[in-house]
Design a protein around this nucleic acid. Structure first.
Lengths: 150, 150
DNA sequence: ATGATTATTGAATAATATTCAATTATTTAT
DNA sequence: ATAAATAATTGAATATTATTCAATAATCAT
C-alpha cells in the first residue's frame, strides 16, 4: 500500500488548493465569470497568498500544539528577523511573528506529542539561543486559521 | 460597481476552496483517481476540516494582528469553554485556544488598525469579564497558517 | 486459507474553470 | 464638462478537471 496520505498532507497544508468559482458565484448570486475575474485579480495583486487545507490536527498525528513566547539572547536580540525567517521554514511551525511587548517572538508549534515537542524545543533553544521561553500549551482548540472546530 | 471582493473574502477565509487533484497527482506521480480516493477519505473521516484562502492581511484591510493572553475573572474561570466558543464565532478572531500555564485563553486577533483593535478589546473585556490581559502585537508576520509570507 | 473489506487504477462522463469578445462603468487628462 | 483610456462585468464557447464506475489488487479478520 502506498502511503499517499503522508505525502498529501504537507502539500495541502501549504497550498495546492483552488477556489470554487461556481460555488462562490451561486452563493453570491453573481455570474461565475465575474467571480473569476475578481479572484484572479486578488491573486495577481498578492492579496491572496495561497489556498490550503485545514486539518483536524489530532487525526493527522499533530495533536500537540504550543505557543512559544520567546526572548532572544543578546547576540540575536538586534536581529530577530534572521531567527524568525529560519523558524518559518520549519515544518512544525504554523506561524511566526515578531512582536512588541515582553517577548520578541511568538511561535505556534504543532507536533505529534509532548515528547516530540520537548525534543523540538531542546534543539531550538540551542540552535537559536533563546534566553527565556514561556510555553502555553493548548488544551483545546476552538478555532484555528479562521476555521471553527467540531 | 459591485463590491465583490468584500463579499468574497469572508467566504474564502473560512472555506469554499477545493484541492487540485490533478496537480497533486502530477506532483506525487500517482494516478488522479488514487489521489481523489485518498482525499475524499480524509474528508469523510474528518481529517480535513476545510479548504481555504490565506491572505496578505495587510492588503485586505486587516493589517493589525495581536495575540491576547487572557485570564478570566472568577465567575468565568470554571468554564472557559463557554467564553472560548463565543470568541470563536467572532469574525476578527483567527484562533482560540484553551491553555495550560499562566493564562486560560490565547486568542489571535486580526483587525484593520490599532483603533479597531482597541475598540474590540474594550468591548470584549466588558462582555467576557477578562481579569487580566496581556497583548502581544505583531510587528511582522513571517509565517501564518503554515504559509510563509513575502 | 478464505471471505470480506479497503485501496488502486483506467476509461467514460459530468462538472467546472478559463478564455474570449462585447458591453458597461469608472477614472484620468485636457 | 467631455473625451479618451482603463477597469469591471458578463454570456457564449472551449479547455480542464473532478467524479463516477467497474475492474483489479492488496490487506485484514477469522
Amino acid at each position: 500500500m502506498k502511503d499517499i496520505r503522508a505525502r498529501l498532507i504537507p502539500l495541502l497544508e501549504k497550498g495546492q488548493c483552488t477556489p470554487r468559482i461556481s460555488q462562490l458565484a451561486k452563493k453570491l448570486g453573481e455570474p461565475s465569470t465575474t467571480i473569476h475575474y475578481n479572484v484572479k485579480k486578488m491573486e495577481r495583486e498578492g492579496a491572496i497568498q495561497a489556498y490550503k487545507a485545514v486539518f483536524n490536527y489530532k487525526s493527522i498525528g499533530q495533536g500537540h500544539c504550543t505557543y512559544l513566547l520567546i526572548n532572544l539572547r543578546q547576540e540575536n536580540y538586534g536581529d530577530p528577523e534572521q531567527v524568525a525567517r529560519d523558524l518559518a521554514k520549519n515544518k512544525n511551525v504554523e506561524s511566526v511573528d515578531i512582536c512588541t511587548g515582553e517577548y520578541e517572538l511568538i511561535v505556534k508549534l504543532r507536533s505529534k506529542d509532548i515528547d516530540e515537542y520537548y525534543q523540538w524545543v531542546k534543539v531550538a533553544i540551542r540552535k537559536y539561543g533563546f534566553a527565556k521561553t514561556i510555553s502555553l500549551t493548548s488544551l483545546k482548540q476552538l478555532k484555528t486559521e479562521f476555521v471553527e472546530l467540531e
